[in-house]
Design a protein around this nucleic acid. Sequence first.
DNA 1: TAATACGTTCAATATGGATTGAATATTGCG
DNA 2: CGCAATATTCAATCCATATTGAACGTATTA
Lengths: 164, 164
Amino acid sequence: MTDELTQLRQRFIERGGQITQSIGIGRVIGQSFAHIYFSPEPQTLDDLTEALQISKGSASMSVRQLEQWGAVRQVWIKGERKDHYQANDDFGRIIRRALLDLIGRRMETTDTLLEDSEAYIKRSKTSSPDPESKFMQQRIKKLRHFRDRAQYIWDSSVLRLLLK
Amino acid sequence: MTDELTQLRQRFIERGGQITQSIGIGRVIGQSFAHIYFSPEPQTLDDLTEALQISKGSASMSVRQLEQWGAVRQVWIKGERKDHYQANDDFGRIIRRALLDLIGRRMETTDTLLEDSEAYIKRSKTSSPDPESKFMQQRIKKLRHFRDRAQYIWDSSVLRLLLK
DNA sequence: TAATACGTTCAATATGGATTGAATATTGCG
DNA sequence: CGCAATATTCAATCCATATTGAACGTATTA
């Protein structure tokens, strides 16, 4: 491979790491994917530790995460005992799965609080309406509406757009 | 305010902090917004430092960020020297601005690398096509296509969906 | 203009979460 | 089965970055 190509490749790996780092999922994941994506031959964990100067643990964990998002897949090479991985190039599917995972995780855990709040509102409908309580009820309602709409948009549109 | 309401409010603040922390923009921003959002009266920086037990610097910085995203606005209260802030409840607009800011920031810096790569491809069209170079060219092309589509989707759809 | 009250900045520090690597589990092979 | 090679786990460590707070800047009042 020419020097220039090697250099470009190196820059892609670096940038991949910067991107994943900046979105808060760690530098190694981006580096690992970039390395595999720009390797003509399927790569092993040892290839990763050597090329990226990372630990065995990091290599193992990053590849597993990438596999879960469908960003890489394992391929069998006869006569070899190590696991070999090659990159998927359908970025739409990859991003979709990753977002589903990362954002979905977050939406789950917020609900009980809103439910508790609505339960409170329902109960307090009967009692005297002091102004502060009124205010809180308004705000909670607004928040609930937004949450519902966000959920709807998320479910119905964003995924389809990114998928293909 | 009733005990129960106070408790709910506290939980919203905590959760706000968890959310912003988990997306990598710091706990204080989420806490600050939640506190202001659930306050009937406009709040000062000192209110924030006291309620959230954070430093003056943190309060100042978080409020400024929130202001930049249109999540809070300053209101004048006659006879008061401190700045007072109240929350905007149009979450669509807030999220839109924040995403524009956070994601836009990232898209900018990625381009020169792709441009350099395409320049290389153009130049190497004439020279002998060794297999590795061929492979790299394919991968770069795929990446470029994805980047363009992502840009298009981002520009044309996502923002409009979230806006209203 | 000085004195005071408040907001902002940024170098220093604390903290959360990414990374490591030795210990452990698993897999492939004779 | 037992051995060797490879992969995974997770407590300890490290590091990026969020947070702090003293110093500085700015606005208001008398």
